[in-house]
Simulated assay, not measured.
Amino acid sequence: MSTTQKVFSEKIKAKTRELGLLDCGISRAERLEEEKPRLERWLNQEMHGEMGYMARNKDMRLDPRLIVEGAQSVISVLLNYFPKEQQHDSEAPVLSKYAYGKDYHFVLKDKLNALLKFIQDELAPCNGRPFVDSAPVLDKAWAAKAGLGWVGKHTNLISVEHGSFFFIGELIVDLELEPDTRVVRDYCGSCTRCIDACPTQAIVAPRVVDARRCISYQTIEQKGELDESLQGQFNDRVFGCDICQDVCPWNLKSEAHQEPDFEPHPQLMKLTLKEWQEMDHPLFNELFRKSAVKRTKFEGLKRNLRFIERASSPGESQSPEE
Rank of each mutant, 00 (worst) to 15 (best):
E50G: 13
E122L: 05
I67R: 10
K109Q: 12
K97G: 07
D59R: 14
M54C: 10
E46Q: 15
D103H: 08
H88W: 11
L116C: 07
M51V: 10
L43Q: 03
A92P: 03
L116G: 08
L115A: 05
Y81F: 12
F118L: 10
Y81S: 05
Q45H: 15
K84W: 09
L112V: 06
D121G: 09
D121N: 13
E69Q: 13
V74E: 00
L79T: 00
A99Q: 03
A92S: 11
D121R: 12
D63S: 07
R61F: 01
L108P: 06
A92E: 00
I75E: 00
A114C: 10
N80E: 02
E46P: 12
G101N: 03
S90V: 12
N57L: 13
H48Y: 14
M54S: 06
R65H: 00
Y104H: 15
D89W: 01
Q120K: 15
G70P: 01
P93I: 00
P83C: 07
L95I: 10
F106I: 14
K97T: 09
G49Q: 02
F82R: 07
E122H: 07
K84C: 11
N57M: 13
S76T: 07
R56N: 15
Q45I: 12
H105Y: 10
G52M: 14
L112R: 05
K102Q: 12
Y100Q: 05
K109P: 06
A124F: 09
M54A: 10
P83I: 02
Y104A: 12
D103I: 09
R56V: 11
P125F: 03
G101Y: 01
G70W: 00
G101Q: 02
H88Y: 11
G101L: 06
E50D: 15
L66G: 14
I67E: 01
